[in-house]
Design a protein around this nucleic acid. Structure first.
Length: 111
RNA sequence: CAGGUCGGCCAGGCGGUCGCGCCUCGCGACUCCGGAUCCUUCAAGAAUGGGGCGCGGGGUGAGGAAAGUCCGGGCUCCACAGGGCACGGUGCUGGGUAACACCCAGGCGGGGUAACCCGACGGAAAAGGGCCACAGAAAAGCAGACAGCCGGGGCAGCCUAGGCCGCCCCGGUGAUGGUGAAAAGGUGGUGUAAGAGACCACCGGCGCUCGUGGUGACACGGGCGGCCAGGCAACCCCCACCGGGAGCAAGGCCAAGCAGGGGCGAGACCGUUCCCAUCGGGUCUGAGACCCGACGGGGAACAGGCGCGGGGCGGCCCGUCCCGUCCGAGCCCCGGGUAGGCCGCUAGAGGCGGCGGGCAACCGCCGUCCCAGAUAGAUGACCGCCCACGACAGAACCCGGCUUAUCGGCCGGCCUGGGUG
RNA sequence: UGGGGGAUCGUCUAACGGCAGGACAGCGGACUCUGGAUCCGUAAGUCGAGGUUCGAAUCCUCGUCCCCCAG
């Protein structure tokens, strides 16, 4: 996933958390907010509760891969945070992809 | 072959499709820097070059523990007259090392049939203090009589009048019992009223001393001595050695942005010079001016002294250096702004191979190789095949160790037992 | 990432190296018509594993978890 479309700065992330709307799923949580740009930015995160460093890296990789594959389906002009939950480690990538697609549909972000 | 023990190595592999970080090469009519030129300024702005971005090609990309952060160094910033006292660490000996709490070799002690493994392993005997609960008569320096044993005395009882037994008092005794983690050498004898290192023999241990071997820890042997000396220094302590403080969020640069306010705070010291007013004297015709002197008053400048305040010298004291002393050093509190980029950032006590030195850890020389540098953090997803199902686990300034976690596999040395030749 | 601190009944909090105590909450009982208050009784704990020591919550080592501070 290219860095240009990644959500990387603390202020941006905090703005999404404060002003955005969230949609939960057993594997992950999606938080989104319009950003006023003509493209969408995506950030991923995994907290201590997911596991140790290896587990957190694995969780973030799964989220990034799913977002990369589904990026063409994203509507333009959103800042999106994907938050990993512990059970994401139990599944393989396609299931994460399905979960993310379902969340996009519920949130009205997919086109 | 089985069991054991020690050491080394590996950490799923191969192929395909999509994807990521970094480096590098090429292309670009995009963009930023740069600035010749022009010019009062603003503005405009060529070339070489650099950065970014886009596209394409090539290379490269986590660990043995990357972990815990328990030690030791490098590096960076701060501080670097010195002395004393504290504080912390290490603790058999010799060596290795940049250094270490690590490693190697050796000694001593303990475990194992053995290979081999384990050990915070200086000093408790002479520097000193402290503690040793409960139990027990007594718990630490020439200790301690509860029962017991023995002697003497008194009283009462029995009987064959010599003893026996009971109670009480005085004394001896650390051999016996009991308590305890621990009761102040062991065995055998002499001795005695009963006993006791009281004495003797042997053994153990201790101190002094001599000799031999060893760099040394220490080992072996001889002589003398007193008869024997409890444990705990992961309690204080003593001895020897070592130790500045903080940490890459160190530290530096660029850009952007804001707003300051309040409180506390040490001499209104002394000295020198000058000025002003005051007083005294003198000169000039007078108001007054000028000159000389005086002490106290006010003001300015200056360097110094003492005092005071603050800071540094890791903590404290001495000492020392710096700053300040009312135009005020510094300290404290409240409030405001920033969350962007670049450097540090990876070539190093570096890996591999060879030769040489050393028992070894390791060291020296030569050759050769370049091996992550991210910044919400790069290795993933899917498919096929094989071994037969893949554990613990993710670099964040860099190294050397230690400790902890871990599915398994391969290789080698050695020991024990069995079989065969 | 680096630095610092801590862990004792369910909660809060004591304990020179010598039997782990107190308060609140809980449970049982008494008092009351019932509840509250009060009184009596009761159970429950040293984060885990080793070591030093006769003896460890305390001293030492390793591990686990939690909290705090750094631009």
């Amino acid at each position: 996933m290219e860095r240009r479309i990644r959500l990387r700065h603390t202020n941006d992330v905090r703005r999404v958390y404060e002003e955005g709307q969230s949609w939960p799923h057993p594997l992950l949580v999606l938080v989104a907010r319009p950003n006023g740009l003509d493209f969408t930015r995506v950030g991923v995160t995994a907290s201590r509760s997911v596991g140790k460093a290896v587990a957190r890296n694995r969780a973030k990789r799964l989220l990034r891969e799913a977002a990369r594959r589904l990026y063409p389906q994203f509507g333009a002009g959103w800042d999106v945070m994907l938050i990993a939950r512990p059970r994401i480690l139990e599944v393989k990538e396609p299931q994460v992809e399905k979960a993310l697609a379902a969340l996009l549909k519920r949130a009205g972000l997919s086109m």
